[in-house]
Amino acid sequence: MNQSTFTLIQNTPLTASVHELKLRGDCSAITVPGQFVQVSLPGKFLRRPFSVCDWTEDTLTLCVQRNGSGTEALCSLPAGTELDLLTGLGNGYSTRHVTPIPLLVGGGSGVGALYSLAKHLCDRGKVVTAALCFRTAADVYYVNQFKAIDAQVYVYTEDGSMGEQGNALDALELTHSQLFACGPLGMLAALDANEELDAQLSLEARMGCGFGACMGCTIETADGPRRVCADGPVFPGGVITW
């Protein structure tokens, strides 16, 4: 984990509620897709955790959903703003043994969080199937980004206003393969109900510290209590007590 100052270099609205933020700073602590950062916001005591959507040595991309006053404030910051970040948090996905045709399922704000994993797997010659699931057409983002890295993209909307009508569970019909998923807890729980799946699930949680000290984000698992921030946020399928 690193603590350092980042500079916001680009703040782009992708939909009415999701912004893509590009920041410049030292990303050396980020080592694996699926890790997250904690962003300190002016006037807020607690940092806000966000999945890393993409990173290079010195640039960081986050997709931020406007959810409350903190994320609202973050999405309205102009380029040039300096922000204090903790980087390189969480375990990230395990990519040592990945089948040739992995299935990535993202829901809502979890879609962007799967991008760096998709990129990483495509770079390694995997045929990535990316199922991007949203409530309605107006919520859809990042489809072109996934297409640009040659992922096989399938869009699902609950109301059928774009792509297929359906949700994350329908995406399971695309391929019976290793699953990587990020999205709302309800979506992950529904996916995890399919016991035969070889899955890695990235959880979101209301966190205090983000690095394992406060025990604020603990979940119950088959192996005992686990901290989403420090033991996760990625957990294997079949271990979480939903």
Partner: peptide, 23 residues
């Protein structure tokens, strides 16, 4: 002890609330 059910962290003005419950 597991402690209390989550959410067990909230924000206050210039501070935070926790209801971890001695995990």
């Amino acid at each position: 002890r597991f402690g209390n059910p989550t959410p067990r962290i909230a924000e206050g003005n210039a501070g935070m609330l926790n209801s971890v419950g001695l995990q």
